[in-house]
Design a binder for these strands. Structure first.
Lengths: 250, 250
DNA sequence: GCATACATGATTGTTGAACAATTAAAACTC
DNA sequence: GAGTTTTAATTGTTCAACAATCATGTATGC
């Protein structure tokens, strides 16, 4: 039966829940609602993620299982399942027999992240297809950042900046690289969080993003790539310097 | 105390176990033995990995927890911990409420892997530093493959080929990209396993690897990169064609 | 014969208690 | 203050149990 085959195909190739049924001569497929597929472990992971983002759990902070499990209202086994997702994202570091702690961004990690970004982002821009849909997303991110700048809303500027670079990764048309970007921004956010001057971090780059975008829109991919390379080298330098000041004075 | 600070530094930045102690005026650091840090969950993961590699667990095969846990002599919770590592490697797919199965390499995954490889490997070669240590590793892999060819030992040829490309990733000097390579080769091995003619898969590439290497050793990085690109496009085509035959006839 | 609904069985996700092993912290000694 | 021993805390694992979910089998209607 087509419905059964479709269910099997979809369940094998994705992790999502689907409802498939015949409606006349059409197979109607509905994606299961997000709420219906949530597990307690994933909810716990989300809550931990939020606590990290809010600074309630600080980089390097030990998170004892029993205490945290009780605080979240789940069992310790379930918390370990949650740690699994967070560990994959790089937000949590688990050391055998010593427990879990919030990841500390370290200098090697930051350097590595920027090295990867230069390789991937610059090459993605060099090889970008004209009128690739991601270019429009870059444009929207630039406009969002400019609007947020008018309000001195640095949190929104930071988010728009991350979206801009996500779109650059998406130029490469690779799900795997997109997942990588998601992970490395999780880790970068930890580093950003250590620096208490977001304007210093993000302000120098609005005009640069716009210049890169305009070169790209004009089809000058090599020039856009070179400008992006300069951008990333500068961003790395600023983050490393800020990180060093934050961890030295702290 | 320097010993305590060193322990803290090491434990925060790596997952390894260290013993640090003062010996005279020198701090002596010993890395904990591998055997001492093994956990039951990691042992279970290794055994599952081996079973997959030996074909005892086939792509797409459901692996019910209770049965497998009993077969491995661990509890179900421990098995779920093992699944965690394997899921991160892409060897296992876990679907909520449906259980775990051995990952099925699918066409989209293979295409994505080769897209990523072209972006990363070709750029790594283009920007390779002269006399980078990874170039020597490429040379050793080529020699190992040629020797294995004399014995028609296709398993060793496949391994040497994977080592050759690992070394190319290492040209980029990024731990993150090296980890990515480890994961994508795990997934590629699943696809290779579906094709029952290893000679067909690997034989065409020995001479190409050697040509790429010689261009690189001669400092012609752009030519090496172009040759690598051709290689990867051909390898993708051969794998996709073989995969399609295997999954159509199967 | 096919489609649908319901019942049954199998499996997963979670809970909680327990215990061995490991690590961290405190106490003690020199 | 440094080193050693003891104690406490925590992690990794096991087990049993149960609710929830899914898969499979059976019965019924068209």
């Amino acid at each position: 039966m087509i419905v059964e085959q479709l269910k099997l195909f979809l369940s094998t190739n994705t992790g999502a829940c689907y409802t498939a049924l015949m409606v006349g001569s059409t197979v109607k497929v509905e994606v299961g609602s997000e709420a219906g597929t949530r597990s307690r472990a994933l909810d716990a992971a989300s809550e931990i993620r939020s606590r990290i983002a809010r600074g309630e759990l600080a980089p390097g902070e030990r998170v004892p299982e029993a205490k945290l499990a009780e605080s979240l209202g789940v069992s310790r086994n379930t918390l370990r399942e949650a740690f699994r997702a967070l560990s994959e994202e790089g937000l949590i570091t688990q050391i055998p027999n010593r427990g879990a702690c919030v990841a500390i961004p370290n200098i090697n990690t930051i350097i590595d992240i920027y090295r990867v970004r230069r390789l991937v982002e610059c090459q993605a821009v060099t090889e970008a297809m004209p009128r690739h849909p991601a270019i429009a997303r870059m444009r929207r991110a630039v406009e969002a950042a400019l609007e947020a700048q008018d309000h001195d809303d640095w949190s929104r500027i930071a988010t728009a900046n991350i979206e801009f670079h996500r779109a650059i990764f998406e130029l490469a048309d690779s799900a795997r690289l997109n997942r990588m970007y998601a992970q490395l921004t999780s880790e970068l956010r930890l580093a950003f969080g250590l620096i208490d001057d977001p304007a210093y971090l993000h302000a120098p780059f609005l005009e640069r993003n716009e210049a890169i975008l305009e070169l790209l829109e004009a089809g000058s991919t090599e020039k856009a790539s070179a400008a992006l390379r300069d951008y990333l080298l500068l961003a790395e330098r600023i983050l490393l310097a800020g990180y060093e000041r934050a961890t030295t004075e702290g």
